[in-house]
Nucleic acid binder design. Structure first.
Ligand SMILES: [Mn+2]
Ligand SMILES: [Mn+2]
Ligand SMILES: [Zn+2]
Ligand SMILES: [Zn+2]
Lengths: 126, 126
DNA sequence: TTTGTTATTGCAACTGAGTTCTAATAAATT
DNA sequence: AATTTATTAGAACTCAGTTGCAATAACAAA
């Protein structure tokens, strides 16, 4: 339903995504903010910010939910489509600024595509 | 650890994958077999069959775990890499026999890639 | 066939990410 | 300042998946 009122909760969560373009898991956000925000509030505000095109979410390994900043999205149009990279060494998740070619599938109507890549990130590779 | 003994449980689960090449969620398998097998047993046997290269697993929408037959895999080598297609209309999941081009990412060491495509399947598209 | 070994199973309890419900609170409007 | 209602905290809940352990059954050896 989107964010309507500028509350302390919205500000606190937006702060977490201010610096850097790294994705953050909800578990991590709950851990960071548990003394200031209720778990339920965190889930709801993140959901609202996604509706507004401010953040986008995706599932990492272990089916954990992750959020990252959108770039160029709005309440009416989510256009920031890209693969996500989860490092198997340090666990960090990056949004990859890479053009994905959606494969031609004559037998199916493709609407969306989610790509999760695993491997070693810039810091962790030998 | 793989399957060691040919038990009733192994046979029952393999039967579910005998005909057709459609993926089946664990939830569906538990539902189908709950009168004959314990939930825990189902999870364990599926895991063993995956170790043996007989089945492969992946996560669909809602983070549910799905299994499908492998083709050309063995206990030592899982080589059956392909995208999965989940129909948003009927919910069915297909293994797509499509070559995926892993994008070049000079900043990361890519080990594996998981692709989940959403849309309408052959039966459900207008 | 009988016996012994141990892989496998069933069951109950547990885990934990995410959701739901409701009363209290606080942003925003009048 | 009073009113409206979006938002929040908290507790309880959901449910896919896991764990621990005692009972069972495959399978090989005798
Ligand atoms: Mn992203
Ligand atoms: Mn498959
Ligand atoms: Zn790393
Ligand atoms: Zn369909």
């Amino acid at each position: 339903m989107g964010v309507v009122r500028k509350t302390k909760s919205v500000d606190l969560l937006l702060d977490q995504f201010k610096s850097g373009s790294e994705a953050i898991s909800v578990i991590e956000l709950v851990d960071r903010l548990s003394s200031k925000l209720n778990k339920t509030t965190i889930y709801r505000v993140l959901n609202n910010l996604e509706d507004d095109g401010v953040l986008h979410s995706f599932l990492g390994v272990n089916s954990l939910k992750w959020y990252a900043k959108c770039s160029g999205c709005s309440k009416t149009k989510h256009s920031d489509i890209h693969p996500h990279f989860q490092c198997t060494v340090c666990g960090k998740v990056d949004c990859l600024p890479v053009k994905m070619t959606i494969p031609e599938i004559p037998t199916h109507d493709v609407k969306s595509i989610q790509v999760l890549i695993n491997g070693a990130c810039t810091n962790c590779r030998a």
